[in-house]
Write a protein that binds this DNA or RNA. Structure first.
Lengths: 126, 126, 126, 126
DNA sequence: GTGGTCTAGACCACT
DNA sequence: GTGGTCTAGACCACC
């Protein structure tokens, strides 16, 4: 099943976001072996070079560790994953606030909405 | 400049969302004349039939009023616009909460984040 | 005249070194326009993608600034160039010391040699 | 594992440099028997004629001595090895000074750098 | 014209 | 088998 990509953002960046979300969501545990470039490329339905570019990006962000000829693993550094999680969350919050602002909602109204919807929504409360 | 459309949703629904956002954002005032189907179709770079389908949808949602031979105007019913605004907002809040839940954030953490980011973000408070 | 490349290091990294040396040596002034990817690729006798990879690297190191559709310029930040210059120099010194160490020369002998050869060599003294 | 050769210099000269470095580094002691042309050729992955040419060169430089029918040995003349060592060192120093000059470093700056880096580097002082 | 992205297919070194 | 590099050629958005 090929992945779906948006036309207005580079595919490799979308792959970065998807894989980053997977790592943050512990779909791949810390230190666990990561699928090969070729496998991921086939799964995603993109050229191996495109997948390669995405993985290099994740490497530069410190989420993956490359061992030449033995493949990649998720970083053992849990803190790095935590940092990325907070970064992604912060960005989502900002996007959300910008959208709500565009609809004319003030900060307090937004918080009220989040509280009431959040209770119905049954957010995990972790 | 033609509008950009996503391939996996019907174009007319995407147009509905765009125009609805414009109306909610008061880009078109209540009671104001709406551009013709032909003009909008050309601007958006779509077939007039597609644009027509979108406008019919907006009529059914009560946001546009058709006056035979004099074109369409935005509804005078401010409440209807308000209801749509609240509907869109509610949907955005839910999407946001689902995403944050996926990142492992509980409701209280989300609210805390929204409060702190909201102050930096300088949301209008309007 | 195509550039000569060594077989045991990636071409794009060798290009990075060459261009970095050019920038440090003020062959391109700060803020000056940089040749296009295609031009450089042709001059060097490599594929444009390879040259692109090298330029991206120089960008990440802060030596080049990219302006989409208007080309690249050398950074205006003279300090960044100075930092790179010191970094390159430090690396050369270390390589040199390692080689001399391998020949059995101690630090004081090396310094003596550098002093005597340096005077004959007529190093600029600048 | 075959040796790696550069395409722009004759292979036999590159072999000369490698073997000379080995002799200077005392990898072969003075007076010690040297491997046969055939063995060296196979190790290096080159034609025996090429290796032969390299060894003849080393003989002419006085580093190897040929004893008909008993093969080659490293010269007993320690001074000759010392002279070669100094020659190689001198050439490295000059190359180094030329590079540093190209980076805009004056002789005194170079010496200062060598002193400070040398202390960190922990050059043997032997 | 510019940089950026993507594909297709190839070769290499390492294990 | 793995990741890494390179080429060739294409299309896009921007100005």
């Amino acid at each position: 099943m090929k992945w779906k990509f948006d036309n207005d953002k580079p595919i490799y960046l979308q792959i970065v976001e998807i894989l980053k979300a997977d790592i943050i969501a512990k779909k791949y545990e810390v230190g666990q072996k990561f699928p090969s470039v070729r496998d991921l490329a086939q799964i995603a339905g993109v050229n191996p070079n495109t997948m390669q570019k995405a993985l290099v990006q994740l490497e530069q962000e410190g989420l993956l560790i490359t061992n030449r000829a033995s493949g990649r693993v998720v970083t053992h550094d849990g803190m790095q994953i935590t940092r990325e999680r907070e970064s992604v969350a912060s960005q989502k919050v900002n996007t959300f606030l910008t959208e709500m602002d565009g609809l004319g909602y003030g900060l307090e109204e937004v918080i009220t909405l989040v509280e009431t919807e959040g209770k119905e929504h049954g957010i995990s409360g972790n």
